[in-house]
Simulated assay, not measured.
Amino acid sequence: MALLQCNFFSKSLCFGTDINVVIPTPNSDEVLNKKEDSYFYPGAKYQVLYLLHGAYGDYSDWLRWTSIERYAAENRLVVVMPSASNSFYQNMYRGSDYLDYITKELPEFVQSMFPVSRRRENNFVAGLSMGGYGAVKTAFESPELFSACISLSGAIDIVGVYESIEEGAIEGPFLWKGIFEKPEEIAGSDADLMALYRKKKEQGYAMPRVFQSCGTEDFIYENNKAARKKLELIGVDVTYEEHPGIHDWYYWDEHIRKAIEWLPLAKQAVAE
C-alpha cells in the first residue's frame, strides 16, 4: 500500500486540514510469492472507504491503533481518514461545517486526486463511537454517494446519548450548545438518524445498508441495542453483531476487519 498524508485548505472548514490515505500498490509479499501484482493501468479505479475517528481523536487514530493498512491491502481498498474534531460530524452552530466537509468537499477532493471510483456501489463509510454515528449520518445524508456504512460502538441513537449525558449516565467531551443551537430539540431533526432516514426514504432515495457492531461490556451497549430496534422498525437494512468487549481499540481493530469483509468488495480495480 501507498501511504499518503495530505494537508489541504478546506472551504467548508475555513482552515487547512489533514487526511491520511492508503492506496493499493504492489508490495514485497506479492513479489516474493509471485502473486498477482497488476495495479496500475489506464482507467484503473478502486473502491473507497471513508473511515471516521471517534471523540478525542483525529485523522491519525486508525493508522496508529489498528492494522487498517493491512486490511486495506488484503482487499485492494482505498481508505481515507479525515479529522472532524468533536463535532459529531455536524455543521456546527458555533464552529465549522463538518457535515458539508465530509459529505461534499472531501469526496470531491478525493475523487479528483486519487484513483477511486465515483460509483455509489463502490463508496462506503465507517467509523467508531462518535464516528460510528458519523458514518451512518454521512451515509443517510448522502445516500446517492454511499451504498453502505459501518458503525462500531457507535452513538447511533444521538437522542438517547444526549439524554444519558445530561443525566450524568455517560460522560462526553461534547459542547452540545456549540454543536447545536437547541440540543434539546435534536429529536425529529436531521441529526436524529431515524428521522433523517424516514425523510430521505420519502424523497425516493435508495438507502444504504448498515453494519452495526458493539461490545457487550461497552458503556454504549444498551444504546446500540435500542438503536438497532429503532432502525429495524423503520425498515433499515441493518446487519447487527455483538461480541464480548468494551469501548477500546482491541474491539475496533478486530471488528473493523470483520466489517470490511461484510462489504461487497471486488478486491481489484473497478470501473469508474
Rank of each mutant, 00 (worst) to 15 (best):
F15L: 11
R120D: 01
I19K: 09
S213W: 05
F180L: 02
E166A: 13
I170P: 05
G16V: 13
Q90L: 00
P115F: 06
G16K: 13
C6M: 13
I260N: 06
H255R: 12
Y89I: 10
Y251H: 09
G132T: 08
D58S: 00
R119Y: 09
S12K: 04
N86T: 10
K177P: 04
G160T: 04
V236F: 12
L196S: 12
M81A: 07
G204M: 07
G188F: 06
K177L: 05
L32C: 10
K258H: 14
P183C: 09
N224K: 08
M207T: 03
Y71T: 01
G127L: 00
K230I: 09
E69R: 02
F8R: 08
Y162T: 03
P143I: 04
Y93H: 15
K11R: 13
G16S: 14
K104Y: 12
G16T: 14
K225D: 09
A187W: 07
G172M: 03
E181Y: 02
T239E: 12
F15E: 15
S147N: 10
A73K: 07
Q212T: 02
N75T: 06
I234V: 02
G127C: 09
S28M: 14
A269L: 02
N86C: 07
M207E: 02
L77E: 11
W176F: 15
Y240R: 11
S112D: 14
A259L: 03
E108I: 06
K34E: 13
V31S: 06
N20P: 13
L106I: 09
S10W: 04
I179D: 01
Y101G: 05
F211H: 07
